[in-house]
Computed example of a mutant assay.
Amino acid sequence: MEKQTVTIYDVAREAGVSMATVSRVVNGNPNVKPATRKKVLDVIDRLDYRPNAVARGLASKKTTTVGVIIPDVTNIYFASLARGIDDIAMMYKYNIILTNSDENSGKEVQVLNTLLAKQVDGVIFMGNNVSPELKAEFDRSRTPIVLAGSVDPTNTQPSVSIDYKAAVHEGVARMLKRGYKRVAFVSGPLDQPINSEYRLAGYKDALADAGIDYDEQLVFETDYSYQAGYDLQEALTAVDATAAFVGDDELAAGVMNGMNDAGISVPEQFEILTSNDTKLTEIVRPKMSSITQPLYDIGAVAMRLLTKLMNNEPVENKNVLLPYGFVKRGSTNSNEV
């Protein structure tokens, strides 16, 4: 049976009021008599009337909808950011269209264009890499776009993140100070600037400060999966690595379990510092020491920044860096990270 669409005209006719009055009731305008408001709400309830967001968007040139592009909906890191985005979106009465790009640059461009075709008022992008093709689409679009937990080396795209380079520099420096000369660097693909121009750069700076030569053999790039980390055990052992900084928590859990299953005890024989401090760090055993990030806040601040851009409000700083820290757990030896 075909669903009959109930219109604002139907509600007005049934309630015996003007369409303007129905509109005022729907939009929460206080300029309506209580008795009239109750009569209209009763009719809305009886007819199951739902305002047509598309029609309202055409009239106002706003859809009050925001598109969110997430590279992997199963990754706890991005899910934590999405919670912050969603809460602030609700506060400012925006609806979210959540899309998954599978960390595929071609699909990211396609997903972005699909969202823009839906006339979203703004977009939050959470991918690990802004490809040249995607950057060209960002630059071409008149719709505000904010990066959350992602980086744009040119700093031309509004963004919210932590200082990944400084965080890795400090974390690796702490491991080196404890006497570890063979600290491995394990990350996702190095063609992603977040890994090559930020995390790896921080790693290199820490080595230079400690007077230790950079050794390419200690650098491992892979995907962000648990299995990829688990499979690195033999390669890490072959280069005599005794500690590792890992650029993703799921990847780090794989590295740790691979070591333990091979009889290499963490942290007694091999230290691990991970990077995102998602709840995964507390689920595994031993629990993992980590750089801390205000994950929820990164999402929330990104959404608030987007609301300002969508409403043409003044923005002092379009590239927001939030504070990071460190938490000591069981995957590192000393009393501190």
Rank of each mutant, 00 (worst) to 15 (best):
Glu2Gln: 10
Lys3Phe: 08
Gln4Asn: 05
Val6Thr: 15
Ala12Tyr: 07
Arg13Trp: 02
Ala15Lys: 02
Gly16His: 05
Gly16Asn: 09
Met19Gln: 15
Met19Lys: 14
Met19Cys: 05
Val22Gln: 00
Asn27Met: 08
Asn29Lys: 07
Asn31Asp: 04
Val32Gly: 00
Val32His: 00
Ala35Leu: 02
Ala35Arg: 05
Lys38Val: 12
Asp42Asn: 13
Ile44Cys: 05
Asp45Thr: 13
Arg46Asp: 12
Arg46Phe: 06
Arg50Ala: 08
Val54Lys: 01
Arg56Asp: 03
Ser60Arg: 13
Lys61Asp: 07
Lys62Ala: 11
Thr64Gly: 00
Gly67Asn: 13
Ile69Phe: 10
Ile70Ser: 15
Ile70Val: 15
Asp72Val: 08
Asn75His: 15
Ala79Asp: 12
Ser80Ile: 04
Gly84Leu: 06
Asp87His: 12
Tyr92Trp: 13
Asn95Glu: 10
Thr99Asn: 12
Lys107Arg: 15
Gln110Met: 14
Gln110Arg: 14
Val111Asp: 13
Lys118Val: 08
Gln119Lys: 15
Gln119Ile: 04
Asp121Cys: 09
Asp121Thr: 11
Asp121Gln: 10
Ile124Asn: 07
Ile124Val: 15
Phe125Asn: 04
Met126Tyr: 04
Leu134Ile: 09
Lys135His: 11
Phe138His: 09
Phe138Ile: 14
Asp139Cys: 00
Asp139Asn: 10
Pro144Arg: 01
Pro144Phe: 02
Gly149Pro: 03
Asn155Phe: 12
Ser159Asp: 00
Ala167Ser: 13
Gly171Pro: 02
Gly171Tyr: 02
Val172Glu: 00
Ala173Asn: 10
Arg174Gln: 13
Arg182Glu: 12
Arg182Leu: 11
Gly188Leu: 06
Asp191Glu: 08
Gln192Pro: 00
Glu197Ala: 09
Tyr198Val: 03
Tyr198Arg: 03
Tyr203Lys: 00
Asp205Leu: 14
Ala208Thr: 13
Asp209Trp: 02
Ile212Phe: 04
Ile212Cys: 07
Asp213Met: 06
Asp215Trp: 01
Asp215Ser: 08
Glu216Ile: 01
Gln217Ser: 12
Gln217Tyr: 01
Phe220Pro: 10
Thr222Lys: 10
Tyr224Arg: 12
Gly229Gln: 02
Leu232Thr: 05
Glu234Val: 11
Glu234Ala: 15
Leu236Tyr: 04
Val239Trp: 04
Ala244Pro: 11
Ala244Val: 13
Phe245Met: 03
Val246Lys: 08
Asp248Lys: 09
Ala252Trp: 09
Ala253Lys: 09
Gly254Gln: 05
Val255Thr: 06
Asn257His: 12
Gly258Lys: 01
Ala262Tyr: 04
Phe270Cys: 06
Phe270Tyr: 14
Asn276Lys: 13
Asn276Leu: 09
Thr278Ile: 08
Ile283Tyr: 14
Lys287Trp: 05
Met288Leu: 14
Ser289His: 02
Ser290Cys: 08
Ile291Glu: 06
Pro294Ser: 00
Ile298Pro: 01
Ile298Ala: 01
Ala302Met: 05
Ala302Cys: 03
Met303Lys: 03
Met303Ile: 01
Leu309Arg: 06
Leu309His: 07
Glu313Leu: 14
Glu313Thr: 06
Glu316Trp: 03
Asn317Thr: 13
Asn319Met: 04
Leu321Val: 09
Phe326Lys: 01
Ser334Asn: 02
Glu336Val: 07
Glu336Ile: 05
Val337Gly: 00
